[in-house]
Write a protein that binds this DNA or RNA. Structure first.
Ligand SMILES: NC(=O)c1ccc[n+]([C@@H]2O[C@H](COP(=O)([O-])OP(=O)(O)OC[C@H]3O[C@@H](n4cnc5c(N)ncnc54)[C@H](O)[C@@H]3O)[C@@H](O)[C@H]2O)c1
Ligand SMILES: NC(=O)c1ccc[n+]([C@@H]2O[C@H](COP(=O)([O-])OP(=O)(O)OC[C@H]3O[C@@H](n4cnc5c(N)ncnc54)[C@H](O)[C@@H]3O)[C@@H](O)[C@H]2O)c1
Lengths: 221, 221
DNA sequence: GATTATCTGTGAGATGTCTCACAGCATGAG
DNA sequence: CTCATGCTGTGAGACATCTCACAGATAATC
């Protein structure tokens, strides 16, 4: 490794948004919990009840709902159905998001199965460079050769890419996806991706996750 | 859902540690990147080089290494081999961590395959309540019936549990694991688990991850 | 209609994490 | 040996997020 100049200043970090990143994550969780509650017949919920379900605190819940401009009523709490709708609006669940998977391997297949047919996420295409994988249809999702990416991403109006290829290929695939026009990436490879400023990458790094658990487990004795 | 009292005050949150949670995660990443570098023949690394690999900033790298008390040399940078050892010490990679998987399903199987035989993590046991799954050995890991959990966790000195059962079962399985004596949990079910104070839970929530990507993708246009 | 209980909305402060700038020093060159 | 270079170590401040406490509001009760 030879010396090179420092180009590591905060690049795509200033991900500015009115809604904190962590709040977005909790809203996703609240939405699922509230759907379950609706199914049980509940119509109203208090901040402390939602907090108990989400294993957080009541003020945190109220702050999150305040952040998205949703109001409740003292003594009655929040109207569950309205709240689910409000969260759906924020999380862009009212419009379908087309997604592409790259890497139909040991991980890609179960991930596709898991997400398949979950509104409003639609897996519009999968890509793999291995010829024997292309042409097939898995869970309603057609698998294309990698060199068709630009064309298919444009045609299907795909906004999000999911990377499930070996670590050594991840940056190349990421560059392809960005060039093809995706606006967000979910990355399962255990590397950090270099992307243009503003483009959001969500990393799911199982090795890191287990390292963290092991560290805190040993700290706790 | 009937009213109940607020028991949602900050409970297991004060996860106190000298090393910030995020730093632990980055150390895991640094370790892998540095191993790769060692394999290419590199012996020393500068903070800005490691920052480039990890897609972060040079001061962040120096701060992280300072936090674990590792020193470099001006003009020479950090000695890679020593740094890997230092990180291994912090991440408890110098002793084997025994892990148990609960839920040998569509997700559990590939996860087991992924982690299998990666030192120093050892999957010492798997558990499933479906009788047809028990008794078999997958990737060197024996599958037991759930009611043997307490016994096996004690015998194999298992410190960490991985939960890959349906959401509705996750809290019950978590309680079983805690009772059996695990000190940390990696949770793949899309719910938040209630655990005793101090016990660390790492959540891998794919639904939330995709919601976050979709949100920022749409924000970006 | 007045009273009361109790839940929401939110300012202000606490906490945790990241960023910046630069002093100090080890190293290689002369 | 001395000097100049350029990288590390770190204080101090910026920033993001969480927590707390309570004012104010509303629905239920009488
Ligand atoms: N298997 C798991 O359970 C698991 C868990 C967590 C993370 N991961 C990570 O996910 C990634 C994939 O793991 P896997 O086990 O599915 O690997 P895999 O080898 O089973 O599958 C990878 C797939 O990607 C395809 N591919 C490779 N390079 C490509 C490219 N440049 N363009 C398009 N397709 C390409 C291959 O043809 C293959 O089908 C790895 O980075 C791994 O670290 C895997
Ligand atoms: N399949 C995926 O790709 C995927 C991805 C992300 C998250 N998840 C989550 O992971 C979890 C498991 O998903 P899956 O697709 O593997 O489900 P699955 O139904 O294929 O497997 C679940 C396994 O858990 C076992 N089980 C159920 N209850 C149990 C209990 N109380 N004790 C012990 N074993 C029990 C079942 O016998 C089964 O073998 C779910 O919470 C799901 O939301 C799955």
């Amino acid at each position: 490794m030879r010396p090179f100049t420092d180009m590591t200043r905060a690049a795509q970090l200033p991900q500015r948004s009115v809604i904190p990143v962590n709040t977005i994550g909790r809203l996703s969780l609240y939405r699922r919990l509230l759907s379950d509650q609706l199914a049980t017949g509940a119509r109203q919920v208090f901040s402390h009840q939602l907090a108990a379900l989400a294993v957080t605190t009541a003020p945190q819940v109220r702050r999150d709902l305040m952040t998205i401009g949703f109001s409740g009523s003292p003594r009655r709490g929040y109207a569950i159905a309205d709240l689910v709708t409000a969260i759906d609006d924020v999380l862009v669940r009212s419009v379908e998001t087309a997604v592409a998977l790259v890497g139909v391997g040991n991980l890609g297949r179960p991930v596709l199965a898991y997400y398949a047919n979950r509104q409003p996420i639609r897996f519009a295409a999968a890509f793999d460079r291995a010829p024997e994988k292309t042409g097939r249809v898995l869970h309603g999702c057609r698998c294309y050769a990698s060199d068709q990416m630009t064309e298919v991403v444009a045609r299907e109006q795909i906004h999000v890419g999911v990377i499930a290829v070996p670590a050594a290929e991840a940056q190349a695939v990421c560059d392809q996806l960005v060039l093809a026009g995706v606006k967000g990436i979910l990355n399962f490879a255990p590397v950090r991706l270099r992307v243009p400023a503003g483009l959001h990458v969500e990393n799911v790094d199982l090795m890191m996750a287990l390292d963290r658990v092991a560290y805190f487990a040993h700290e706790h004795r």
